[in-house]
Design a protein around this nucleic acid. Sequence first.
DNA 1: TTCCGACAGTGGGGTCGCAAT
DNA 2: ATTGCGACCCCACTATCGGAA
Length: 516
Amino acid sequence: MLLARVAEVSRAVAAVPARSRKIALLAELFAEATPEESPLVIAYLSGRLPQGRIGVGWSTLKEVVPPAVPPAAAPALTLAGVDAAMDELAAVAGPGSQAERTRRVRELCAAATTEEQELLVRLLSGEVRQGALDAVALEGVAKAAAVPATELRRAVMLEGALPPVARAVLADGRAALDRFTLRVGRPVQPMLAHTAASVVEAVEALGPCVVEEKLDGIRVQVHREGEDVWVHTRSLDDVTARLPEVVAAAREVPSESFILDGELIALDPGSGRPAAFQFIAGRVGSRADVLGAQAALPLIPVFFDVLAADGEALVDRPGRERNAVLVRLLPEERRVRRLEITAPEDPAGREAAERFFADTLARGHEGVLVKALDAPYVAGRRGRTWLKVKPVHTVDLVVLAAERGSGRRTGYLSNLHLGARAADGGGFVMVGKTFKGLTDAMLRWQTDRLAELAVEDDGSTVRVRPELVVEIAYDGLQRSTRYPAGITLRFARVLRHRPDKPAAEADTVDTLLGEG
DNA sequence: TTCCGACAGTGGGGTCGCAAT
DNA sequence: ATTGCGACCCCACTATCGGAA
């Protein structure tokens, strides 16, 4: 198959708003592909390269963004040829590699038509912007293979990726799905949670449930088969080699075969309180001198779920049964603290849940997860049966500048630079940016208002007179080397504009530091 | 007919490893 | 030695479609 055919369908998918039409267009092409090329077609049309990210970002791509490179007159690139080129691109390393990557990307684009160039750039940048990624592509495969999407989705979650499952089901039909089962050693997509505003709201929504402490660390899925152990992150990256202490902990579990789901945290050497997320992420990211890094900051795995044990899959069992297995496998200090609320309608139960939440925060943790007691482990879905609750801080800050948006925000001033009032009363100190929480109406309003306040425009960022106050919600402060006060807001989002409030009454850096 | 679950899109800060300067 | 880039860890929120209620 030619790349041009894929590019053509991608453009058509982007052009139709209805999801059902997107799915139909994708299904048509998937049915047209041979079994050999189907994984490639599906990967490309779900917005990713089979090779994953291969060291090419916007800085490299800006030199080839159409129409920077003269396009080929007629389509000639085959899917197999492009795939081979991507393999080679991914393998480029060492001195001169940056120039070599740029050269190869340009060479590939020179052999592509304009439409193909656009697809290549979008695949390499990871932004297909066709309104269809994994989930919609999965629906397309289900339609093409005439299998129920729910069954296909389950197989994909257990396999961890769509293309291999798609190839099997397109070739052999529904029966092929039976080949994809939960297997120790093969990571599955982790179950995710939704957000609730309060513990009471979460408990009311779920009925009989368990409240668990939410640890602020790195999610890990730990597999063991005999002496073999694998550790995977949320995106299924294999980080086993960086985490010897997790491997050792897995080998202490009194079971030869299991899959555990948990969080990696660390304790601050001084206070014994949970270490800041930044330190834990740094540890997990360190590949060089693993033993030295481990000595400086040993990580502690704490688990909250078990997907399989002693050769038996547990994902379809209710949460209370999985927890019973977890209790059997792990000592208390290897499990998250939890409180069962068996009678959610009883005020005493709700009060207990509230106390547990407050106590968890007092211990220095991030918040809680509330989970329905009878819910199965639904891999890869953000099920309504797990709800997270975290405290939210708010603060009034001043807009110092705004960046022009892209994609559907083209033409709007989108990303706001946020300033706190300086402690000494002189001016404002930037403490972060945000583009979140804005409705289209707010976007339109702030674009107009900020244009009135503009004092300088470099084409991408518009500096403004510091007069517009915005109410900002955030999850807490982080240490920062980027901003002058040495701090920045974590997960800042706009709650509302405050045109009624003078900038001189905005919150100060000291207020921010006081609230932590 | 209305409601709501699931998806995609739009980016935020920090940290590491590696290449370029 | 420092800087810049890319990958990946954490993530919030809105708009939209389409099936459920």
